[in-house]
Amino acid sequence: MTDLTSQPTPAPAGLPRRAFLRVAGASAASVGLVLAGCNSTDPLPVVPIDPNLLTLAAGETGLLNYLYLLEQLEAAFYQKVVDAPPADLLPADKAFFADLRDHEVVHRESIRFALAANAYDANRATPLAFNFSTLTLTTRAGVLAAAQQFEDLGVAAYTGAMRLVSTPSMLSFLAKIASVEARHAAFVRDLRTPGSFAGDDVVVNAAPLQSVSLTKTPAQVIEEAKAFFLPIVVSTSLLPTT
């Protein structure tokens, strides 16, 4: 959004937006009381932090955390399939899914390394648990449908995120992953519906661009994936948009 006049004052970096608004609200409400004579030894008002709100940081750090979260999600999904494959999964499928799991684990760990102490979960005691209750993971069809959803979403997420990075090295790093996700997506789509590797729901035409990948902004991606994070709500409000 370039129309800055309609924007609220940006929250300070690092402070979740909702928490910031709560602080702002509390200050406005309490300022009168403070002026009315509370003495200086009174404790500051305690602002409850929503434990279920995960607000990704600003800038490239936030963007990388966003992709880290998606890679964690994909890796967790494939790990679940590898650990407890549906009864009708073909023997060959198990090899495919082990490959897909390995790749996503490698992506996840590489991004975690790149983020180091800036990873959103660097100080978390336990990793975020993902919620797959909306998926049918007891049948081959259900697993393939879910895999397609994750992979197509991943491709759209990377293509949408790469325009938002500011350093060439980061762009190169993400591009190396992006095309592998596209290979995955085509593969899973072909397994599910032969010949759908570049279906017109993901490779789209809209003048002046033709036959290009569907792109989604971080906000669109998180909105689509929100069920997998519940009860955690992920906010992309601080991420770059241009």
């Binding site: 293509t159 325009r163 992006a178």
Partner: peptide, 13 residues
């Protein structure tokens, strides 16, 4: 980059 990922889909197929 959006063309690039379509090429990757082709290669996969």
């Amino acid at each position: 980059l959006n063309i690039h990922s379509v090429e990757a889909r082709h290669s996969s197929h």
